[in-house]
Amino acid sequence: MIVRQQDRVLVQGITGRQGSFWTERMQAYGTRVVGGVNPKKAGSEHCGVPVFASAREAMDQGGFDASVLFIPPLAAKDAALDAIEAGAKTLVMLTEFVPVQDVMAILAAARAHGCCVVGPNTAGLVTPGECFVGIMPGFNENIFQPGRIGVISRSGSLGTLLCLNLVRAGFGQSAFIGIGGDPVSGTTMREALERLDADERTDAVVLVGEIGGAKEEEAADYAAGMAKPVVAFIAGRASPPGKKMGHAGAIVMGDQGTHASKKAAFEAAGVRVLDMPSGVGPALSAALAG
């Protein structure tokens, strides 16, 4: 779930407006885009790379490592299964509003084929100085600089703000991992944290969470045993009670999901929880000095 410059990237939905806009930016930054997919425009060229009928065809004709989906919600499942069954190592699902049962089916296929899914409803992955995959402003030097801080975020916009505050404080990022804002995710906050804990280029991790679900609590469990410093910001302290969870859903969540629950879980694990995103620089400096 950390993208590298040598990774060959396929763009499913490359010919759409957003697919084109972001493919050009990825290419300009150094991402190795090797092709795109649009069954209706197979055989043509777009953004200087070949357009294939399917991910399977792209795999057969040159191959790819990671695929990124610019595909509407109800078509996302077929596109994802195409990439997974073709042998994608990583699948970045940007799409919001993919039906949850479709996501579960995609993740079951990914487990069977050994594919790492990031998202859905993610802004993607950035490795500053190397490449980015998705819809993050990886190219903006006020926001992303090569460095040694790993960032994991449920939100693209809020993750961007935290990265901005890191750069302002003189830090850079080893990797940005957008896990996405959906309840069911291919990569959880805990899994991303495990990856950054094992990453030699990462000295400390910033977790950007929000209310709802139990991803922060799961990550806190892992963070408790980490040697690398971890700091966190959790959005939603001032939010009114949100979408009501079903009765049986509440049992799965227990008392998890509130800002207070997440803050308590992090603090019990030794993770410093920020009041404001602008506090990230001083908190990291203190944690790394200690």
């Binding site: 449920r154 939100s155 916009s157 809020l158 804002g181 950007v208 929000e210 959005a235 939603g236 939010s239």
Partner: peptide, 17 residues
């Protein structure tokens, strides 16, 4: 007025903070 659920919640949090 903000973009993205996370940033909008955070802007509200900042107002309260």
């Amino acid at each position: 007025l903000a973009n993205g659920a996370g940033l909008t919640m955070t802007t509200m949090d900042a107002v309260v903070h």
